[in-house]
Design a protein around this nucleic acid. Sequence first.
DNA 1: CTGAAAGCGCTAACAG
DNA 2: CTGTTAGCGCTTTCAG
Lengths: 326, 326
Amino acid sequence: MANIREIAEKAGVGIATVSRYLNDTGYVSDQVKAKIQKEIEESNYKPNALARAIFTKNSKTIGLIVPNICNPFFNQIASVIEENANNMGYTIFLCNTDDNAEKERNYLEVLQSNRVAGIIVARSKCEEVYSHIEIPVISFESYISDKIITVSSDNYNGGKIAFEHLYECGCRNILHVRGPKSFEATEERYRGFSDGAREKNLEIDFIELESDFQVKMIDSNIEGFNKISKYDGIFVFNDIAAATVMKFLKQKEIKIPEEVQIVGFDNSFICELLHPSLTTISQPIQQIGTAIIELLFKLINGEDVPIKDHFMKTELINRETTLPRR
Amino acid sequence: MANIREIAEKAGVGIATVSRYLNDTGYVSDQVKAKIQKEIEESNYKPNALARAIFTKNSKTIGLIVPNICNPFFNQIASVIEENANNMGYTIFLCNTDDNAEKERNYLEVLQSNRVAGIIVARSKCEEVYSHIEIPVISFESYISDKIITVSSDNYNGGKIAFEHLYECGCRNILHVRGPKSFEATEERYRGFSDGAREKNLEIDFIELESDFQVKMIDSNIEGFNKISKYDGIFVFNDIAAATVMKFLKQKEIKIPEEVQIVGFDNSFICELLHPSLTTISQPIQQIGTAIIELLFKLINGEDVPIKDHFMKTELINRETTLPRR
DNA sequence: CTGAAAGCGCTAACAG
DNA sequence: CTGTTAGCGCTTTCAG
C-alpha cells in the first residue's frame, strides 16, 4: 500500500504538507489540498495507523476481554461497548478467554504489546497479573485489586429482590439454582437471596451448577433436580439456566407458574421467547456498558477518577412465571 | 512503557541483541540471555507490536465485520474464528455494522489503516468498496465480487430439506415465514423451500419479516400471523424467529406439533431450550469458521487459492416440533 | 503556507 | 556471538 512519501511526491509537495492535510493541523492552501486529495483517492492511500500510533502514543484501540462472546449477557455488553468505543473513534480487540487464566494472561501480553489505550476485562481469572499493567483497566463483574475500578450490577440486591418477589408471590418452599462459586456475580446473587430468606426466617435449598452458559447444565446435577417437584418457587442464577429448568419442569408436566414459580436473572432476549415468559431480574446493560466506557476514557485521558466500585441497579421484570398477589 | 533501547542499556548489550533474543533469531549467549530476560521482567517490558508490524508488514491482526454480535449465529461464528485466529497468533478487531453500509465503510477504512492482515466480512452491505481493497478478504454469507471468495452454508439446500421434511411429516398446508429479501442467506432458504414445494406441486404461503434478530419481529406483520391457524406446517427462516412464532402459537393455544409442525434454521442453542424442542436445519458453524480462517490464511500467506464459492452442508436436526412418519 | 530533518520503537543487514 | 546503522511510515519542530 502506498505511503505518505509517494503521495507527497505524486502531488509534488513535501511529506509534512500531506501530514498536515491528513490531520488538519496547520495551514495548507486549497490548491494543494485538492491535489493531495486527488492523489490519495487515486492510489487508495490509507494513512498507516500503526506508524501514527507509535508516534502519538495512542493506538486508538481497546482490549475487551470476556469469558465467552456466545453468552448473551457478555455479547450484549460487548455490543454496547463496541458502539460507544466506535463513536469515540476507538476499535475493539476481541479477546475470548473461556474463563481460562492462561488465555487471559496471553491476551494481556498481546494487548500490552499492541499498546491498547485501555483494557476492559470481564470476570478476570488472573488478578495477580494486573498489578504490573500500566494501561488503564476497568474490571467488570470481578474485584481485581484496590487500584482497579470495578463495575458490576448490584447482584446482591438482585438476589434479594428475587427472593422477596418469590416470597410475595406466596412461595414458601424455595430452591435456588445457583451459579458457580468461582463467579463473583453468582456468588453475590446467592448471598442476596440467602440473606433475603434469612430475614424471613425461611430455610431454602440450593443446587449449584458448574457453568453459566451451556444447554446441558442440568445433566451435571440430575439427582438434585429430580427432587424439584418439592418446591413452589425457584430462583435460577441466569436466564439460560432458568430456561433449562423450565424445560425440565415442563417435561415432568409440572405447571409453571401454578405449581412452581420461577425467577431468572439477566433479562436476556430469551425471557420473552419462553412460554410462559420469564420473570427475571434485569441488569442495566446499556448503563453498565456506558459506565465502563466513560470510566475507561476518563482514565485514558488522564483524569483522576476516584477508585471505587460501581454497582448498577438491578430491577425486577415481572412476567408470567410468577404470580404476584396484590 | 520501556522500549528496546532501555532494555539493551540496562542489560549492557546492544539493541540488536535484545531483538535477536526476543525473536529467537540468531545466536545469543546464555549469559546474555539471562541478563536480558531479567531486565525484561523487571521493567515489565513488552515489545511494541506496532513498531514490529510496521517493519515486518504483518500486524498479526484480522478484522471481523459482522452485522450484530448479539445474534447467536454470528457470535458463534465469531467465537470459532477468534479461537482459530488466536491459535495462529492473530488477534481480532471486532466490527459491528448493524447491517449499516456507512458503518461498514467506516470500519473498512479503520481496518485498512491498521494494516490488518486479512478481513472477514459477514453479510456485506457495500460490495462496491471491496474492489479497491488490497488486503485479503473472505466474505461470509454474501457474494461481493468474482474476485472474492464467499463461504456460506448451503442455504438453498437447507430450505429444500426443510420443505421435504415438513412434507414427509404430512404437512400440506404450509407457510414459510421468510427473512428479509436483502439477505442472501434467507433469500436462498426461500428459494430452496419454494423449489421443494414446486416439485411436489404444492402451493405455499409466505410472510416476510424485516429483521433477523429481534424479539418483536412478529409485531411488524401481525395481520399475517393472525391467519396462522390455517397451516399445519411452518418453516421459519431462523430459530429465534421460530421461537417467536412458537410463542405466538402457544398463546393462541395451538398445539405444536399436533396441530402445526415447525422447522427452524441455524440449530442455535435455543432449540433445546424450547418446549417442545425445535426441529431445525443446522449450519455447520465449526466447519464454516474453520473454512473461513483456512482460506483467509492461505490468502495471507500468498498461496493462490482458486476463487470459488464454498457451500457448507446443512442438515436436518430432528426434534420435537415435527412428527416424522416412517 | 511549506519542506527538511529528527525521531517514535523496532528489525535486519553488515561488519566485527 | 554482538553492536552499528539504516530504514519501516508517520508527526512535528524549525527554518524558510
